[in-house]
Amino acid sequence: MTWVLNNLELIGSRTLSHLLLAIPAIVASFVLALPLGWVANRYRWSRATLLTAAGLLYAIPSLPLFVVLPSVLGFGVRDRINVIVALTLYGLALMVRSAADALASVGMPVVLSSTALGYSAAGRFFAVELPLAGPVLLAGLRVVSVSTISLVTVSSLLGVDNLGLLFVDGFQRGIIAEVLTGIMATVALALIVDGLLVLAGRALMPWTKARR
């Protein structure tokens, strides 16, 4: 506990840095997964291909991806962009399946009747399908957010600033409190963001609250 009190500033800056890696990746994977999920859902042939590719992407160990991406993207090894792109890829791997499932959960009768009401394809997507897919999308987003926040820590092995550096440093110095702080702060951060997502979901989709 004394370690925590003596290092509040360090923990704070590591936490902020952690969020600056995780949040852009979470947002990007959500935004990119929507069109991909739509394609997977719309065209039967693409579903298996996209979902298998997403599954395989997830099987790539994170550490090599963090290291190899820089040479592909042309940034330095420690550059934050690499980490964000890598995390976005992992997030996409999880989120594409969720998005496809979410859009599939909107029943065909609903889609057909909104077409009959005169919605264009785009209008129907934003006004009908997306809101109805919301709850399943949110469930997927929550998984992505938790796993992304946890995964950020691996990039500390490359010297990228985030809560994972507390493991690396605590490991070398034998300070268990430091390692434990890193773990608990990561979990707490994940749970807080998760809670915010739930609250945001209730605000944006008030109709789901009644059902619970």
Binding site: S150, T153, V154, F167, V179, L180, T186, V187, L191
Partner: peptide, 19 residues
């Protein structure tokens, strides 16, 4: 299980290793 998903594996490996 939500909390367990958030557990950073690197941290757990390090912590249990130290002990």
């Amino acid at each position: 299980s939500g909390a367990a998903r958030a557990l950073p594996t690197l941290g757990v490996v390090t912590l249990v290793g130290l002990v």
